[in-house]
Measured scan of single mutants.
Amino acid sequence: AEEIWQQSVIGDYLARFKNDRVKALKAMEMTWNNMEKKEKLMWIKKAAED
């Protein structure tokens, strides 16, 4: 689920960090860890469908 979420937001994060992939990935990891369980559930369901 986290991978699907990352694939959907990586472009936004890379743009925000001027294509600094290391910073973008760290920010994504922090965002994922801070997400509410119900927000993650949507992505977990999406992962299950694929």
Rank of each mutant, 00 (worst) to 15 (best):
residue 14 L to Q: 02
residue 12 D to C: 13
residue 5 W to V: 00
residue 15 A to G: 08
residue 17 F to E: 03
residue 32 W to F: 02
residue 35 M to D: 01
residue 15 A to Q: 10
residue 47 A to K: 03
residue 3 E to P: 05
residue 50 D to T: 14
residue 41 L to K: 05
residue 23 K to R: 11
residue 44 I to W: 06
residue 50 D to Y: 14
residue 13 Y to K: 00
residue 39 E to S: 03
residue 31 T to W: 05
residue 36 E to I: 04
residue 43 W to S: 02
residue 7 Q to N: 11
residue 29 E to I: 10
residue 26 K to L: 12
residue 34 N to P: 00
residue 18 K to G: 12
residue 28 M to H: 00
residue 10 I to L: 11
residue 37 K to A: 15
residue 35 M to Y: 02
residue 50 D to R: 15
residue 31 T to E: 10
residue 26 K to W: 08
residue 9 V to T: 03
residue 41 L to P: 01
residue 17 F to A: 04
residue 50 D to G: 14
residue 18 K to H: 13
residue 31 T to K: 08
residue 13 Y to G: 00
residue 45 K to N: 11
residue 1 A to L: 03
residue 38 K to D: 15
residue 50 D to C: 15
residue 28 M to N: 00
residue 31 T to H: 11
residue 33 N to Q: 13
residue 14 L to T: 03
residue 18 K to T: 07
residue 10 I to R: 04
residue 32 W to C: 01
residue 7 Q to C: 12
residue 26 K to F: 09
residue 2 E to C: 12
residue 16 R to T: 07
residue 21 R to L: 12
residue 25 L to F: 12
residue 26 K to C: 07
residue 30 M to A: 13
residue 16 R to K: 10
residue 37 K to R: 13
residue 48 A to E: 12
residue 47 A to E: 05
residue 21 R to N: 06
residue 5 W to P: 00
residue 41 L to M: 09
residue 44 I to S: 06
residue 35 M to P: 00
residue 7 Q to H: 08
residue 29 E to T: 09
residue 43 W to M: 02
residue 17 F to M: 05
residue 39 E to T: 05
residue 45 K to T: 14
residue 8 S to Q: 08
residue 12 D to Q: 10
residue 37 K to D: 15
residue 22 V to N: 11
residue 14 L to G: 01
residue 33 N to T: 11
residue 1 A to I: 04
residue 45 K to E: 13
residue 41 L to A: 12
residue 8 S to A: 13
residue 28 M to R: 00
residue 36 E to F: 03
residue 44 I to V: 08
residue 40 K to S: 01
residue 43 W to N: 02
residue 5 W to Y: 04
residue 1 A to V: 05
residue 29 E to H: 10
residue 16 R to P: 01
residue 4 I to T: 07
residue 25 L to C: 09
residue 27 A to V: 06
residue 45 K to Q: 14
residue 26 K to E: 12
residue 23 K to T: 09
residue 31 T to Q: 07
residue 39 E to R: 03
residue 16 R to E: 08
residue 15 A to R: 13
residue 37 K to Q: 15
residue 8 S to T: 11
residue 21 R to G: 06
residue 49 E to C: 11
residue 25 L to G: 05
residue 25 L to W: 07
residue 14 L to Y: 03
residue 38 K to M: 10
residue 35 M to N: 01
residue 31 T to Y: 14
residue 27 A to L: 05
residue 45 K to L: 13
residue 44 I to D: 05
residue 11 G to P: 05
residue 46 K to V: 06
residue 48 A to S: 11
residue 33 N to G: 07
residue 47 A to I: 06
residue 17 F to Q: 01
residue 22 V to D: 12
residue 48 A to F: 13
residue 16 R to F: 11
residue 10 I to E: 04
residue 44 I to G: 07
residue 22 V to C: 13
residue 4 I to W: 10
residue 48 A to T: 10
residue 44 I to Y: 12
residue 37 K to M: 15
residue 20 D to T: 01
residue 4 I to G: 04
residue 20 D to F: 02
residue 39 E to K: 04
residue 39 E to V: 06
residue 14 L to D: 02
residue 1 A to K: 02
residue 26 K to D: 10
residue 44 I to R: 04
residue 14 L to A: 02
residue 44 I to E: 15
residue 6 Q to T: 08
residue 4 I to Y: 15
residue 25 L to I: 11
residue 9 V to G: 01
residue 4 I to F: 15
residue 45 K to G: 08
residue 42 M to N: 10
residue 40 K to F: 02
residue 9 V to R: 03
residue 15 A to H: 10
residue 43 W to V: 02
residue 8 S to M: 08
residue 11 G to E: 12
residue 19 N to C: 14
residue 40 K to G: 01
residue 12 D to V: 10
residue 24 A to Y: 01
residue 32 W to T: 00
residue 18 K to P: 06
residue 5 W to H: 00
residue 46 K to D: 04
residue 47 A to G: 04
residue 45 K to F: 06
residue 7 Q to D: 09
residue 49 E to I: 09
residue 21 R to W: 13
residue 20 D to L: 03
residue 47 A to S: 07
residue 18 K to W: 09
residue 40 K to V: 03
residue 44 I to L: 12
residue 15 A to V: 12
residue 3 E to F: 13
residue 12 D to F: 11
residue 22 V to P: 06
residue 4 I to S: 06
residue 31 T to G: 07
residue 33 N to A: 13
residue 21 R to K: 13
residue 18 K to F: 13
residue 39 E to A: 05
residue 7 Q to I: 09
residue 11 G to M: 14
residue 1 A to M: 07
residue 47 A to M: 05
residue 18 K to L: 10
residue 41 L to C: 14
residue 6 Q to S: 09
residue 38 K to V: 10
residue 43 W to K: 02
residue 42 M to T: 08
residue 28 M to L: 05
residue 24 A to F: 02
residue 15 A to T: 12
residue 29 E to S: 12
residue 34 N to T: 11
residue 8 S to R: 05
residue 16 R to A: 10
residue 29 E to V: 08
residue 38 K to L: 10
residue 22 V to F: 11
residue 31 T to L: 06
residue 15 A to D: 08
residue 15 A to K: 12
residue 35 M to V: 01
residue 42 M to K: 14
residue 2 E to M: 15
residue 47 A to L: 07
residue 35 M to K: 02
residue 7 Q to V: 08
residue 27 A to C: 07
residue 42 M to H: 14
residue 6 Q to E: 04
residue 33 N to L: 12
residue 19 N to Q: 11
residue 5 W to G: 00
residue 41 L to E: 15
residue 13 Y to L: 03
residue 8 S to C: 12
residue 43 W to L: 03
residue 12 D to A: 09
residue 32 W to H: 01
residue 24 A to H: 00
residue 44 I to M: 09
residue 17 F to K: 01
residue 50 D to K: 14
residue 28 M to T: 01
residue 33 N to P: 02
residue 46 K to S: 05
residue 11 G to R: 13
residue 44 I to C: 09
residue 10 I to Y: 10
residue 8 S to K: 05
residue 12 D to W: 10
residue 36 E to C: 06
residue 48 A to K: 11
residue 45 K to W: 07
residue 50 D to S: 14
residue 10 I to T: 03
residue 30 M to I: 13
residue 42 M to Q: 13
residue 49 E to K: 11
residue 12 D to E: 15
residue 4 I to M: 15
residue 8 S to G: 05
residue 13 Y to C: 03
residue 1 A to Q: 03
residue 6 Q to C: 11
residue 50 D to F: 15
residue 37 K to T: 15
residue 49 E to D: 10
residue 32 W to I: 00
residue 2 E to D: 05
residue 28 M to P: 00
residue 26 K to N: 08
residue 35 M to I: 01
residue 28 M to I: 04
residue 23 K to P: 03
residue 38 K to R: 09
residue 49 E to F: 08
residue 20 D to H: 04
residue 25 L to A: 08
residue 30 M to F: 14
residue 23 K to H: 06
residue 21 R to V: 10
residue 32 W to L: 00
residue 30 M to D: 14
residue 39 E to N: 04
residue 48 A to W: 12
residue 14 L to C: 08
residue 3 E to W: 15
residue 22 V to E: 14
residue 24 A to T: 04
residue 6 Q to W: 06
residue 36 E to S: 15
residue 6 Q to D: 01
residue 41 L to Q: 09
residue 23 K to E: 12
residue 45 K to M: 11
residue 22 V to S: 11
residue 36 E to V: 04
residue 29 E to D: 07
residue 19 N to Y: 11
residue 6 Q to N: 06
residue 19 N to S: 07
residue 43 W to G: 02
residue 39 E to Q: 06
residue 22 V to W: 09
residue 31 T to A: 15
residue 26 K to A: 14
residue 36 E to Q: 05
residue 11 G to N: 13
residue 5 W to M: 00
residue 8 S to H: 14
residue 3 E to Q: 13
residue 7 Q to Y: 07
residue 34 N to D: 07
residue 33 N to R: 12
residue 13 Y to N: 01
residue 45 K to Y: 07
residue 44 I to F: 10
residue 1 A to R: 02
residue 31 T to D: 14
residue 24 A to S: 04
residue 42 M to E: 13
residue 7 Q to T: 08
residue 49 E to T: 12
residue 33 N to V: 07
